[in-house]
Design a binder for these strands. Structure first.
Lengths: 336, 336
DNA sequence: GGATTTTGTGCAAACGTTTGTATTTTTGCG
DNA sequence: CGCAAAAATACAAACGTTTGCACAAAATCC
């Protein structure tokens, strides 16, 4: 492997000048810089990152810690983050917490051991606060949280506009003439679900409808619980449901089918997250899309700007987008 | 940050002994090893990976290069690989080729620059051979290919049992009484699709049916082309289709619905890949499942065993599995 | 044209770990 | 008890890069 010393020797200069030339220091003459670059190219030089990292005390890499990388949402975030980090010469080291605090801590230690320049993290569900993160993150690394965030931790937080999204999803149903709209809510231990619930409620109020706790169903994020909730919603006179998740919306569809109601003519449904399957099923499912790829990009950008001295990035909102499909599109729009 | 010298000083010994103690060398007394471990624990020591990497000339990390990490298949492979690599103290650096040779080369150079111990790769589609990989991979790194492999490259290759899978998928349709079974084939430039086609043909022959090129449709991997192929298949008298992809199978379903045929009573379908949506739609779609997570695990294991001197890993097959769902399950099984 | 600033390079140390070789300590044995 | 062998530790160099400081050469000023 060729080193800067090899280049220096060939050109009759010293390694320090070569180093400066390659790193674009203004303290080297243009002619020598060019000579160095040519020689580096010619010899096929590639910087030894380990040596560089050791000397500088940090590595040109950021760690991304997610519960599971094979979840569509997270893999898209990672994809987005990688695309901008790569452009700026940073590698991406990925870690999975498997929703366990223990593994999360292990990952943070590993990243600290590698002296990464930054950590992008969406924490494991069981954790109640960010203490274990604060205790185990490299104090010199930039911390960026996304999606699942603790407001007591320092640094940028990238979140979806959950409130606004749920608000618009609900309003969309009202504007399509549905008159009694239930809500499938998630776990209120999660900030995102709390905000979606609030958005749903506010939309009802703003459109002159009332909030009825009878038709709000909590702790439901999978198909089966969605099905149970859907049956109750129908029983209690709903003609539509806004669901804070797509899987539970799927369960609602099961219940609606079982009841013999036609979608969307007799029953409307809007889900959340725009999972891939929503666009492929029949009827296709309207959904409030999150934009995980964009979220990843913003998280990476937040890291990059935080690097600059004096810069401070706070909370960054990523818009959600209503994807209107069959499950909420009545043939005859029933706006009053 | 605490170093091995700090530990050494506290204990009145030298850094070399501390290093050996921590790395489990047999050349250090048990009592001192324990003392070192206690002190390391107490001071909160963590090895500086950059220094270690520099000295050893390689880093405890492997790079994974995939077209896109947000594709379900690849993110599952990565998840599987990470799970075993993590256990053995290796970090995972991920890179996306975006299906471009140029980006793939860039990724390989970056990994070489980092002196990774291994590279797990599934190559970009446009490449016709592995030359650019061979030229740009770190000669000291272990190369492991998965899913999309070049047989002219050295090192382990992890592939799905495509032939066997297609064979069984087709046989399953025959055993369910379908009598004229079409095939939606992919691009024959890809080894995987070639093998699936062969498996389909052989199953027909082995079951005493004949292969009819009229009902084999090539270059179809998306919903729209599947739809076109499905229409033709129906026109040409098929009562079932084995599709080498799930998306094209989806298109076939569209065509079958349009023709007013009932699934599975009048028309049977089996797809391939077991994409998430196959289990969520109505009717649910039978599919030959690949096991990407397992493939990732095996790729990582192949890397680990290749590390041992003298060990040689060749081609590793990952079984496929027929997931029988509604689209191919007739109420009355029509075995002759 | 001499003094002073600017510009470009060289020198040398440092980052923290690993490891071949040398040295010391301990053990075993007659 | 003495000596050789074995075990444990110390010494020192090396990995390749970066960077503060010193220094020389060129440019600028009065």
């Amino acid at each position: 492997m060729v080193t800067i010393s090899d280049i220096a020797k060939k050109l009759g200069i010293t390694p320090s000048t070569v180093s400066r030339a390659l790193s674009g220091s203004p303290r080297v003459k243009n002619s020598t810089r060019e000579a160095v670059e040519r020689m580096a190219e010619q010899l096929g030089y590639e910087r030894n990152e380990a040596a560089s990292s050791l000397r500088r005390g940090k590595i040109n890499a950021v760690g991304i810690v997610v519960p599971r990388i094979n979840r569509a949402f997270f893999s898209n975030v990672i994809g987005g983050a990688e695309s901008v980090l790569d452009e700026h010469g940073y590698s991406v080291i990925i870690c999975q917490s498997h929703e366990k605090i223990e593994d999360e801590v292990k990952a943070l230690k590993m990243l600290r051991s590698n002296r990464v320049a930054g950590v992008l993290i969406s924490h494991a569900i069981p954790s109640e606060n960010g203490n274990h993160i604060l205790e185990n993150i490299d104090p010199n690394a930039v911390l960026v949280q996304f999606d699942r965030v603790f407001s007591d931790l320092p640094g940028p937080r990238i979140v979806s506009e959950n409130y606004k999204g749920a608000y618009e999803g609900t309003r969309h149903l009202i504007e399509n003439g549905y008159r009694r709209i239930g809500n499938i809510a998630g776990y209120l231990s999660s900030e995102a679900y709390v905000q979606r619930l609030q958005g749903y409620k506010q939309a009802l109020l703003d459109m002159g409808m009332e909030v009825d706790e009878e038709i709000i169903f909590y702790d439901s994020i999978v198909r089966e619980t969605g099905y149970q909730a859907g049956k109750l919603a129908i029983e209690r006179g709903c003609d539509a449901v806004y669901s804070a998740g797509d899987y539970s919306a799927l369960g609602v569809i099961d219940a609606v089918r079982e009841a013999g109601l036609r979608i969307p003519d007799e029953f409307g449904i809007v889900g959340t997250a725009n999972e891939q399957f929503t666009g492929l099923m029949t009827p296709s499912l309207s959904s409030m899309a999150q934009h995980p790829y964009e979220m990843g990009r913003r998280a990476a950008q937040a890291f990059l700007t935080s690097l600059k001295p004096g810069a401070h990035v706070g909370e960054v909102s990523v818009p959600m987008e209503l994807i209107i499909r069959e499950s909420s599109s009545r043939n005859h729009i029933g706006i009053l």
